[in-house]
Structures are given as structure tokens and as C-alpha cells.
């Protein structure tokens, strides 16, 4: 078993709120309140209308795999290998980089439907990860 302490994200004003939502079990997507454009990763100004006003929506957690990689080496403490990293195209239209769990590395495929779950590490850190969507096992 790998040690339980994964590297924690540095948090500042532009991203801390997102990780707080994750700790509460939500996959948040930042939304510009000027023009309603969704954006991820979060940033302080809307590149479309330049508004600095924003709120967020909660993603359904459903999406498909735009791409993925399976990491074998180097192996960092706090992660189990092979480690499946995915780029999810969320239903809402933004993309999100995450980890795929409950799936054998040889089963990962492009365009595979996935669903979000919140993983809680033994040290209490929580973050959104994904698993194959129910009924999508091949």
C-alpha cells in the first residue's frame, strides 16, 4: 500500500473556493455572472466579457473521456500505480483533469462514459475522482 498522504494543492484566492466545494463533496464549475460562460480551471476575469463577477454551478459529475494516460514511473508517495489520469469532457461542456478509479488500466478507452465520486484519503483530504459510469463496463 502506498502511504496515504498525496501532495496537496497550493490554495490561493483564485482556487481555494473550488477545493472547499470539493471538500463538501461537490465538483464545482466557475460561471461568469456577466455572460454566463462556464470556465475551468477558474480564473479571476472572464476572457469573453471581462467581468470579474462570478459564481459557480455544481456539475452533474457525468462526462466522457477526452483523453487519458496511465502513469507507471516515477512513483510518488501517496499514489497507487499504475495511476490512471483522465481528461473528462463534462456534460456541462467544460473539461476536468482527474483520476479514474475502480477500473483496470487495460479497460480505459477514449469516449468512455464516467461518473464522479468523492475520494477521501486516510488523512481526510477529499477530491473528486471518476469511475466508469454504471452500465458502461465492456
Amino acid at each position: 500500500m502506498a502511504p496515504s498522504f498525496r501532495m496537496k494543492p497550493p490554495m490561493g484566492e483564485d482556487n481555494g473556493w473550488w477545493w472547499q466545494a470539493a471538500a463538501e463533496g461537490k465538483l464545482a464549475i466557475q460561471r461568469c455572472t456577466g455572460c454566463n460562460t462556464l470556465r475551468h480551471p477558474p480564473r479571476p476575469m472572464c476572457g469573453e466579457c471581462h467581468s470579474m463577477e462570478w459564481d459557480s454551478v455544481v456539475s452533474s459529475g457525468r462526462g466522457t473521456l477526452s483523453s487519458f494516460t496511465v502513469l507507471h514511473h516515477p512513483q510518488f508517495p501517496g499514489f497507487d500505480y499504475p495511476l490512471i489520469i483522465i481528461l473528462v469532457e463534462l456534460e456541462e461542456g467544460t473539461r476536468f483533469t482527474s483520476q479514474l478509479v475502480n477500473c483496470a488500466p487495460e479497460q480505459v478507452a477514449f469516449d468512455m462514459p464516467v461518473e464522479m465520486l468523492i475520494q477521501e484519503d486516510p488523512d481526510g483530504f477529499r477530491l473528486p475522482v471518476f469511475q466508469p459510469a454504471e452500465g458502461s463496463h465492456q
Partner: peptide, 18 residues
């Protein structure tokens, strides 16, 4: 905390470090 470090924050906790 810098804008660059916040950029990496989206990858570090998932083990994308290289």
C-alpha cells in the same frame, strides 16, 4: 502562492507531477 502554482494545483493532487 502564485498564479503559476495555482495552475499546477489542478494536477499535483492527482499525481501529475512530471
Amino acid at each position: 502562492i502564485s498564479s503559476d502554482l495555482i495552475h499546477w494545483s489542478w494536477y499535483m493532487p492527482y499525481g501529475m507531477l512530471t
